[in-house]
């Protein structure tokens, strides 16, 4: 056997292993969630009632699905202007300068901070600040969780868009300049169109991160198992309720939590697929 064949065999078996892992995960999630879906059927997804009291158990995932989607979308909206302008700053206006390098390192550093630290900071610094500013009663809730999520996902969108913007060929931009375009015109008519698929991919990645974030959200969202009335109401997310309730759960409740895990798994898959589709359409 030559080395080429060995490399191929190793790469092949490792890829198969990853495929098996994903398939095995899906298999056990489906198996574990069957009792919940059998008992509640479609009501599991559309019911907002979460009553774990023994003897009258009723589980509906709607509060958590709504909470997850609202916090993640809100985080994406809040982070969008911040990370987009930062990536333009780093990749276009100040590309290659010392300022951009330092700022780039700082942005990447944000991605390396453990989520529990974000949670603590949110709890002890951001929350009192929000109370002082008069947002909501106790500073806990969907809005606070979205804010912390927004800060957490900034580096993902920024780094990727920054790289892609930096890769737009200079020839294109110079051609635009030679036609008399201003810098802003070059950005809107050349850079962004050329880099848009990469930029969108960055935001999809960061949205996926927001969907699955657990610890920081648990500490700030208020953990109320009800569909929230407003942005400033307390709520809960899918990842957060699993982390909170899993330890002491058994029977139907355990199955319901696994079912929420399955829904989260599918949601992430669907959102990634939509993202891929958008990128494909753009090209």
């Amino acid at each position: 056997m030559n080395s080429d064949k060995i490399t191929k065999a190793v790469l092949f078996s490792v890829s198969i292993l990853i495929l098996l892992l994903a398939a095995g995960m899906l298999y056990s999630l489906v198996g574990g969630s069957l009792p919940a879906f059998k008992t509640f059927g479609l009501r599991f997804i559309i019911s907002g009632e979460w009553d774990p009291t023994y003897g009258r158990e009723k589980y509906g995932a709607l509060p958590f699905i709504v909470g997850t989607l609202i916090t993640s979308f809100a985080a994406l909206l809040i982070s969008l202007p911040l990370s987009f302008s930062t990536s333009l700053f780093l990749g276009e206006y100040f590309r290659g300068t010392r300022v951009a390098r330092i700022l780039g390192i700082l942005v990447d550093l944000l991605a390396g901070i453990p989520s529990i630290v974000y949670g603590l900071w949110g709890f002890y610094v951001l929350r009192p600040l929000l109370i002082d500013l008069g947002f909501g009663g106790q500073g806990f809730g969907i809005f606070t969780a979205s804010l912390i999520l927004a800060i957490m996902i900034i580096p993902y969108a920024t780094s990727l868009s920054n790289e892609i913007i930096g890769m737009v060929p200079n020839d294109l931009k110079e051609a635009a300049y030679s036609l008399g375009a201003t810098r802003l015109e070059v950005i809107t008519t050349v850079t962004i169109p050329a880099a848009r698929s990469g930029i969108v991919a960055g935001y999809i990645l960061s949205f996926g991160r927001a969907l699955g974030e657990t610890m920081a959200v648990t500490m700030l969202i208020g953990n109320t198992n009800l569909v929230p009335d407003s942005l400033f109401d307390t709520g809960n997310t899918m990842a957060s309720v699993i982390a909170n309730q899993f330890g002491e759960a058994d029977g139907l409740k355990l199955s319901s939590l696994i079912a929420i895990g399955l829904l989260l798994f599918l949601m992430t898959g669907v959102i990634n697929a939509i993202g891929k589709l958008i990128i494909k359409k753009m090209n």
Partner: peptide
């Protein structure tokens, strides 16, 4: 309306994780 159990359908309030979480939230609020 509520009953007894390890986790409940709470009529009011907000949740925090573990004794340290509840104690921390109370001391901060």
């Amino acid at each position: 309306e509520v009953g007894a159990g390890k986790s409940l359908k709470w009529p009011v309030g907000m949740g925090a994780k573990g004794n340290p979480g509840v104690a921390g939230t109370i001391s901060q609020t």
